[in-house]
Computed example of a mutant assay.
Amino acid sequence: MARIRLRRIARGKGVNAMKKLFCAALAALVLTAGSVAAEPFAPAPDAEAQLDVMAASGVIQEEINTLYHTWDGILKSGMAKRSHYTFYAAVTDLNHNGRLELLISSHFLNRDPLYYAGDSISEEQKKGLQYLCNNYPSEVYGEAYEISVDGSTLEPYAINHANTQFPDLTRLHIRGRKTDGHYIYMVDTQRMPRNKSWTSATDRYDIVYDAQILWADVDLGVGTNAHAEGTASVHGEQVEPFYTSMNLLYLNKDVDPYGIEAEKFQRERLDRGGRRINFVDWQALDKDARTALASSWYGWSYESEE
């Protein structure tokens, strides 16, 4: 699939330097297509044995069965051209305790932009809309598990996202900052909620963005630092998000999405976040779960700010 470039757009009095920087931040944090090559890591004790336990646990097969069951329901509902469901998995050690975690990220994709555009658009435009639909899920949810203390089983790990959007774990950044005894990680969750009022093609699509943090304790805690809303348009292969509102929740303050305060917030996240963790898709997991899980783990590294 073609790589989508983020381009500036003029609105009102024009684009200032702050907007340019904010767009660059979102491009790096939100619209990147995958992880870069990993740095060498210190392996967890008995990591290979733990990967064996994960692969044999039945969790991946259960997720695959759920995917097929959900897809069968989509087919029977007649929504196959407008909806899609998929999931990804990653192996991590977020709390640095040597017991590996298995993170599952499930995405429900809204394909209404492609459906309503039909065949009247160019191939380039179709690629742009496809990218938009694939990278802005309608809904995001998932599961987490951790190897037991004795290393013999894979146990459910609760995700505590009370009063906040469920995090898109495929957009979890790898560099943890140790705060009050916990490693805090950056998560960027972007969505394109389904708009039931759509009945035809449109030139702009509503999007939302949540800048979140995640930490590993007795469960995986999730908090939201900022929430932004806006629209995205597609011109050829280019996807252009434009945010019209932003609230810094930790300050309970509305700010200009392209102003100084938003720019400072995004810069700090860029500096602290690091690359994204290494996820594998369900097709690789279905083919050979053990190999796919190992490839995800080999992409992990303990990049931390003490």
Score class of each variant (00 low, 15 high):
191 R>K: 15
56 A>Q: 14
14 G>A: 13
285 L>V: 04
220 L>K: 02
159 I>E: 09
55 A>S: 08
264 K>L: 15
196 K>G: 12
125 Q>C: 02
202 T>V: 13
73 G>H: 06
134 N>G: 04
238 Q>L: 08
152 S>T: 14
10 A>Q: 15
197 S>I: 06
137 P>C: 01
37 A>K: 06
257 P>T: 09
11 R>P: 01
117 A>I: 11
233 S>D: 06
56 A>R: 15
158 A>F: 13
111 R>G: 00
163 N>S: 14
262 A>Q: 07
150 D>W: 00
283 Q>M: 04
274 G>H: 03
108 F>M: 01
206 D>Y: 15
201 A>G: 01
104 I>E: 04
17 A>W: 03
49 A>W: 03
149 V>A: 12
200 S>L: 08
265 F>K: 03
254 D>W: 06
275 R>D: 14
58 G>V: 04
231 T>N: 14
48 E>R: 12
300 W>E: 10
232 A>D: 02
188 D>T: 07
82 R>L: 08
165 Q>D: 03
129 L>K: 09
96 H>R: 15
259 G>N: 13
246 M>H: 10
160 N>Q: 10
97 N>K: 03
25 A>S: 15
40 P>T: 10
80 A>W: 05
216 A>H: 08
141 Y>A: 01
18 M>Q: 15
140 V>T: 11
266 Q>M: 15
230 G>D: 08
296 S>Q: 04
304 S>R: 09
175 R>P: 00
75 L>N: 05
238 Q>C: 09
109 L>G: 02
38 A>L: 05
